[in-house]
Each structure stands twice: as C-alpha cells, then as structure tokens.
Design a protein around this nucleic acid. Sequence first.
DNA 1: GAGCAGGTGAACACTCATGTTCACAACGGT
DNA 2: ACCGTTGTGAACATGAGTGTTCACCTGCTC
Lengths: 179, 179
Amino acid sequence: MSVHLLQTATSVLLKDPTASLSDVARAAGVGRTTLHKRFPTRAALVRAVASDALDLIYSVAREVDFGSDEALEDLVTRLVALGPRVEFLLRFPGLERDEELAARIREMDRPVLDLITRLQGTTLRRDLPAWWVLQTLYAGLFNAWEAISDGRLAPLDAPRFVLTTVFEGVASAGPADRP
Amino acid sequence: MSVHLLQTATSVLLKDPTASLSDVARAAGVGRTTLHKRFPTRAALVRAVASDALDLIYSVAREVDFGSDEALEDLVTRLVALGPRVEFLLRFPGLERDEELAARIREMDRPVLDLITRLQGTTLRRDLPAWWVLQTLYAGLFNAWEAISDGRLAPLDAPRFVLTTVFEGVASAGPADRP
DNA sequence: GAGCAGGTGAACACTCATGTTCACAACGGT
DNA sequence: ACCGTTGTGAACATGAGTGTTCACCTGCTC
C-alpha cells in the first residue's frame, strides 16, 4: 500500500512538478493527513520517491552481468521496464540540489560509464565521449517512457526501439549518406 | 533590452521552473515592479518566453530548404545554435496545457514530420515511425544543450555530435554487432 | 469489551509568491 | 523649464500550499 503511494506520487509529480500535496493525496486515494504522517514534509516525499527509484535501479543493475558484451542491451531492456520511476529520478526539477541524492546518482552512473569506456574498444565507436553515449542512452529511455505513457508505443516494442535507435541511429543502413 | 529580459527569464525558469518572479527580476537586473508592468502575470511571462522561442524557431525554419536531402542536417545545425530557448519550449512543465501554444508546437512539428516521412524513402530507415525519429532528434538536441550549458561540450562540436549520434548511432561501424 | 494502531476530516496558524497601488527618481524631447 | 515615459522601491491585500493539532472512526488483537 505504501508502495502504491510512492508510485502514484511519482506519476503525479512527474506530470506536474508543482502539484500540491492535496493533489498527490487525492490521486493516491488517501487523506492529506495520512500523507503528512508518512512523509512529514514535501521534501521528504520527494526524497522518498527518488530514493525508492534509486533502489529499483540498483536492484536491476545487480542482475546485469557487466562483464558481458550484451550488458548494455540487457541493462536498457531492464530499465525500460522500470518506467516513470527512473524518469522521475533524472528529470524532477531541483533534485540535483540534494547533495546526497546527487552523489548516489553519480555513483549509479559510474559502472555504466566504465562499461561504455570498455566497450569503446570493441562494439562502440571511439569518437564520442563516454558521458555523451550515456546521455544518449538516457535520452532514448526518456523517449520510450514518454511515448509509452502517451499510448503511442507498445511497451514490448520499446526495448527494440531504444536499442536500435541508440546503437544504429535513424539513418538507413544503405550507402554512407554522411561520408 | 526586453530581449535580454526574455533570455534571462528563459535561463532562470529552465534551471528552476518554480523560481519566483523576484528571482527572475533580480537575475535580469530589473525591479519586480518593472517585470510585472511588462508581463502582468506569471502566465503571461511564461507564454511570452515560449512564444518568443516559437518565433525564433520559425525564423530559423524559414531559412531551411525542406526540399533538400540535407534539410535535416541543416535544421539540426541551426537549432543547436538557438540553445536553451527551444529547450524551454519543449520542456517547461505545464506548457502543453496552453492549448494555443500546444497547437503552434504541433504546427511547427508537421513540416519536419513530413520531411522525415519523405526521407524514409531514401536516407532514413523505414522500420521506425516518423514521430519516433523526430523525438530522437529532439533528444539529441537536448543532450547537446545540456552538455553545453554544463561546459562539457564545445558549442562548435555540438552539431557534429548530434548528427552523428542521431543518424549513425553510438555503435562502431564495424561488422554488424546486432544482427 | 478494552485497548490500540492506523486512517480521516476539520480547523488553525504560518509562510510565501503574487498582483496591485503609490509616490518618487531619472531621462529625453519639446 | 515642462512634461511624458520608463523604471524603481515600499507597502499592502490576497490566496494557496504547507505543517500541525485534535477529535473521531474503523478494524484488529488480547
């Protein structure tokens, strides 16, 4: 039940970051008093949502074999399934000003950056910085989540879309069109 | 001078969408009263910023030959130069609830979507919907703007990064790694 | 049935962004 | 020198979101 509360808070706050606590409580089908009892302040609620999202990501990352060559594909596929939770973590305005959260996010990025750097020896092109590749990965995920929540993209199609686009780009595979 | 005010408002509101009008006024080096005189309400200010960004985009789009095969490349290069203004237009929370603005944005997307659809006969792959390609394009631009404002990416490098990534992807051009 | 934990609505005080008004200063054109 | 324009700070009223308290209800355990 508390889980559902965090999920609802995620959606509501993501759709409108200025939503009042009354809005969140109502959307969760719960009294505002109850919400305040669980999360004394608005900041506490936001941090709880973000922290929960971080836990989700870590639990997913733990299942990925970062030594494998398909680690990135695996990671992306699993992250797509997490949906808006991760989006909240990386998009909610002002979240980066919580130094503890920001540190945990950087810590979360590090192994992925290392993986990217390593793969740049083999399957990834070397003329782009690792951080740019990571941002591109995130961007693909954002696109998928947004499209899914809009109902334009079927969840099962999402991983393929993201992976294809990020790795191979949107240009046709034909004769080099950008020599 | 009014131009500079809108630019400042764009940056401030983009960095923190909940920034108060005092913050905006102070950042612009102007009295809050003056700000209120020019834009009677907060909503008016936001709409002015967005509307100004739309004008910028239209003025840029008018210089692009949509019949050319390099139209997308040209468009991206010019949009990168516009910086945060466009970002504001596509990212500011709640902007889509202003129906007039939303309509103008859709109207702005249409010719680009048509262009993408047309290019899918030649230089663009056909197994991705046009709207997905457009979103990918936007995502690349966002990445560039963010990286530039963080000081991680040189503005002159940005167009190449975006175009390379979006069109060719981040995988090495070697033997097919995703058969 | 007593007691208790969890949830609820109502009410309250407080803070803060907002919008408005007003009197005053700086400036440029006539 | 006069006046209209433009900008400014100060002050005020208002409304909304927030945090807190309290009395009350429900369901459960002993």
